[in-house]
Design a protein around this nucleic acid. Structure first.
Ligand SMILES: [Zn+2]
Ligand SMILES: [Zn+2]
Ligand SMILES: [Zn+2]
Ligand SMILES: [Zn+2]
Lengths: 165, 165
DNA sequence: AATGATATGTTATAATGTAACAATTTACAG
DNA sequence: CTGTAAATTGTTACATTATAACATATCATT
């Protein structure tokens, strides 16, 4: 049985993003409580800042905002929080952009396949078993055992493709 | 009809790497001549340094070697050469490592799927149409049109898996 | 040889990320 | 409670990766 879940859809026109964010924050809180780890103020705030949009957010942009709120913030403040959030599955790093996106599904530990729109910058996350299975097979043909996959796909999202028409 | 070409195999025990490198350099020279672009001394030397092994090479490691040979070298020297080599398809960047690997097939323009061994650091490049087709299909289901793919797979290569046994 | 295009030299700086250690806060056992 | 260890945050410094901007040199063509 295979699965093709879309974890973070592209923003539809006028989608209520406030809800995306609130939902993600709520899930994060529940997840942390269940795991006995602490979603401290800093971590929570960084997660909020990552979720401000569906575009990948840069560490130093997060830092700039933190510094507006609390001058004691420094690079380690942000990177530590991001490390925590990645470990707990609430944030993924987009390697090809040196930027971070929120994940709405921290309970099912995974790293998905990212679709990144060259026009609007929005990112969608798929978590597709067919892709995973095919790659495992192809790698296996070379005797390679997969630990982790970085799959970042650049292109044009549906909304932007429509607008171009 | 689909294709699963292995462009850069994992190094077999005692494989004659000198030949990998010479072959890549020869192809590069021919390709540049055919395209009317110039494989200058710097570019050629950077390509050689990328091909010193099958492990991804860092820009500043290349720079250090260039500086041994010519003190006038600076970061732009390396990054310009790498840009040229990437544009001409002779080098690929591994985004998740900020490092560069040689490609032996600059004529068939592509960016492949990389298998990166966590143990020996070697990288193999696949260029697999099945993977490309499946990803295009899955992305297409979301209305997404693919321009470019970054696929970097971490794991254990066949040689290292055998040694572990 | 003159010319424009390409490539390289040079300096400075931007952007991204980490090491190391001190201070503070939290959890919790006694 | 209160002392203690662990976890978190503060702070400073630095390492790594990459680019901007402009000067100089080289190459290709006339
Ligand atoms: Zn949203
Ligand atoms: Zn995810
Ligand atoms: Zn070789
Ligand atoms: Zn290649």
């Amino acid at each position: 049985m295979s699965e093709n879940r879309v974890l973070v859809p592209f923003k539809e026109n006028g989608h209520a993003h406030q809800r995306c964010m609130e939902s993600a924050l709520t899930v994060a809180e529940q997840t942390c409580r269940a795991r006995g780890v602490r979603l401290t103020n800093i971590r929570r705030r960084v997660l909020e800042l990552v979720w401000r949009s569906h575009e990948p957010v840069k560490a130093y942009d997060i830092l700039a905002r933190l510094q507006d709120e609390h001058s004691g913030s420094a690079p380690p403040t942000v990177y530590r929080a991001l490390d925590f959030l990645q470990t707990e599955g609430m944030v993924h790093k987009i390697e090809s952009l040196n930027a971070y996106v929120g994940c709405g599904d921290p309970n099912h530990m995974h790293i998905g396949q990212f679709l990144i729109c060259r026009d609007c910058g929005a990112v969608a996350e798929m978590d597709d078993d067919d892709v995973r299975i095919l790659l495992a097979e192809k790698a296996g043909n070379l005797g390679f055992q997969i630990d982790r996959e970085v799959i970042e796909i650049k292109g044009l999202c549906a909304v932007c493709a429509t607008e171009k028409r």
